[in-house]
Design a protein around this nucleic acid. Structure first.
Lengths: 236, 236
DNA sequence: CGGAGTGGGCTT
DNA sequence: AAGCCCACTCCG
């Protein structure tokens, strides 16, 4: 029998993946997938793989059948919990990676908490968990990240451009109220993020938009619309 | 595991029904129902059962989960179509049974039919399809049919007490106008049911209600109310 | 490869 | 939201 044994992207080095096609019976034509551990042991299911690898590995996003990290799985989970669930960095491999958990300062007493429906506490800087995850198009080409305009400035500890973009995207996606940035300035926030950060706003300073900015944007939009019209005329 | 495999009332002999409770996972506690065909094949859904049994069986009123003929299904259909749908006898099994179809005499021409919204033709004596179906209480004890008062007399061919009761029940249930019985007498109807029967009325002669009848009924009601009051006092 | 047992899309 | 179906997983 011809078998394809290949190193597997989502797994530690040394692991091989194998596909076997069923040749007869009711399930003829279906394939069974299994994995060969570095020491030659045959693994036939995801639970078995998890047992073999141990606690250090997070297989929640690993698709056993395809052998890849399943991004649609990730999206499914996110829908249920907009602030994500676990303080575990989301990556494109199954290695669990340490992440600093920053607890929000709890100023409320228990009796105060009893009144009204309680929102779960929002983690500060949770967008950092998205670090290293990149969008790609249908051909799996990674889409280049945007550059930030000069007047958009991060507020918070060690924020990369990537972090800031993710923070803004998340705010636009999740929030139903205006996205305006942090009211407090950088120095204040640095002193005590737990108190001085507005968790409902992205980690950027408030951006001053001048009349000139608005006018320039209007010109751009009109320009873009004209180009689109021309393009459509060219097609029809 | 302990399984209850039982012969199933609504199905041909030899079929067994089985209930399995889900023990783990997100759906723990839910039950799955399946059926074992006489040759041991496991059937897991109603469409699959229909495929297995073939055209000879009418599962429209069969409730897969409970394994019974579903009378509430029947009622649901009646709401949409007060004269029922198919010229198939409704029984307590899923076997399709032959039934004599009586077409209503069509005196209208096609051009006449074009005007206004058309009611579907009402079948005469369709209540006969209900023959053999009996009400039962929650302990599955069959509820004894009522006796008819002497002044309630059937009008129509070969009507049993059962037919008449069903006809009256159906009229009370379906009709929004007064239920008064047939205007024409028995002899006239017997001559030509298609013409002389009022399909919107039950198959009974009009009942003469005298002043005396009314007075007797009033006494009965007052008596019943007093007894109910006494019973309630006894409880509280 | 079969089949019990569960997940999850789709319908009501 | 609840339930029905189906397809899949995982282990014998």
């Amino acid at each position: 029998m011809e078998k394809r044994r290949l190193d597997c992207v989502g797994l530690p080095p040394g692991w091989k993946r194998e596909e076997v096609v069923r040749k007869s019976g009711l399930s003829a034509g279906k394939t069974d997938v299994y994995y060969i551990s570095p020491d030659g042991k045959k693994i036939r299911s995801k639970p078995q793989l998890a047992r073999q690898l141990g606690e250090q590995f997070d297989l929640s996003a690993f698709d056993f059948r395809s052998g890849r990290i399943n991004h649609s799985q990730l999206r499914k989970r996110m829908r249920h919990d907009s602030s994500l669930v676990l303080p575990i960095r989301q990556t494109a491999s199954i290695f669990k990676q340490p992440v600093t958990v920053i607890h929000r300062q709890e100023s409320k007493t228990k009796s105060e908490l009893k009144h009204g429906p309680q929102d779960p506490p929002k983690q500060l800087f949770w967008e950092k968990r998205l670090q290293g995850i990149q969008a790609c198009d249908s051909q799996e080409e990674v889409i280049k990240a945007l550059d930030l305009p000069r007047n958009v400035q991060g507020v918070g500890p060690e924020l990369t451009t990537e972090n800031i973009l993710q923070s803004i995207s998340a705010a636009l996606h999740i929030s139903s109220s205006p996205v305006v940035g942090q009211g407090n300035n950088r120095a204040t926030v640095a002193k005590n993020p737990g108190v001085n950060i507005d968790v409902y706003q992205p980690h950027i300073q408030q951006v001053i938009v001048s009349e000139d900015d608005i006018r320039r944007q209007e010109v751009k939009v009109i320009e873009a619309r004209r180009k689109l019209q021309d393009a459509i005329k060219g097609i029809m």
